[in-house]
Amino acid sequence: MSAPALSADDSGLYCAAGDFHIDPWRPVKRAIITHAHGDHARPGSDAYLCAEPGRLPLVLRVGDRVQTLAYGQQLTINDARVSLHPAGHVLGSAQVRVEVGGDVWVVSGDYKRQADPTCDPFEIVSCRVFISESTFGLPVYRWEPSGFVMNELVDWWQNNADAGRPSIVLSYVMGKTQRIMASLASLVDCEGRLFAHGALQKMNEAYRASSVYLPTAPNPLEVGDGYDFSKAIILAPPSVAGTPWMGRFKRGVTARASGWMRVRGRRRRLALDRGFVLSDHADWPGLLCTIFETKAERVVLTHGNSTVLARYLSERGLPAEALTLDRWGEQEEQE
């Protein structure tokens, strides 16, 4: 029996045959990055490799030592053959397929099965061992179609505007923000009514420079004093909640867009006026059907509810375990 293609070491998931790490949580010699979220892309490694569309966001995070690979293209690294495939999570997000001596492993990174105008859709890649995320690995997490949720969000904005109240949507800096912006633009004319907090501007520019269409969304602090935001929608990172920045939007109504909003307790704890269940991760049915569609014989789970999903799959006859030493998903709590 030969050594496994991938195994966990102190720095993360390691491929001995290719001598590289995938999404390491410590600086290493060579890192393949599934996507540019903070818990997957950490600075300090000597060399980075990511999918082509994900280059600019990753450069923002780790600097310019970034090489790219087109989706589907094969690369040989020492004794391993590597290719990247769309994960549908955020711009440039990739699953990493690693083949060593004919044995195929796939690392999903974060993924979703729903449509997203800002990135390529998830692609099924057959494998023997599938290393899947399980952030929302509980049956209470099931998503409504994105179009339905976006229409709810537009209705909410409209009602607030009719009442003369600014709408503030808290969303993750990379991915969620741009997904909402692009979806809004396809439903209504946002011109002059859509704004984005200063901390979102760089990432928005990186998306635009990567040829993703986003509507204009200036920084609300740069439109001049006395601007009337009563009919506006303003996107901002979750960290602004409860800060003086919010004070600028008198009578503002605050919502958050995240998969966690499926549970009332979360929403109430954050003292939000409204929660929209919009996630960039797979829901429970999405996880199950993906795992079965890969035809994997063995499943390793990372993020959040890994032990729950592992037990469920094992009871259904599919060998599964939770990855020990899992440092991913620490930020998904704030997703």
């Binding site: 509980l138 049956p139 209470v140 997490y141 099931r142 499926r262 549970v263 009332r264 307790g265 509810n305 729950v308 469920y312």
Partner: peptide
């Protein structure tokens, strides 16, 4: 699995509806 779900949600009626 119901118990795990209930733990994460914290409310019986809500767990049922989800």
């Amino acid at each position: 699995l119901f118990t795990e779900s209930y733990d994460a949600v914290g409310d019986l009626a809500e767990t049922v509806s989800l």
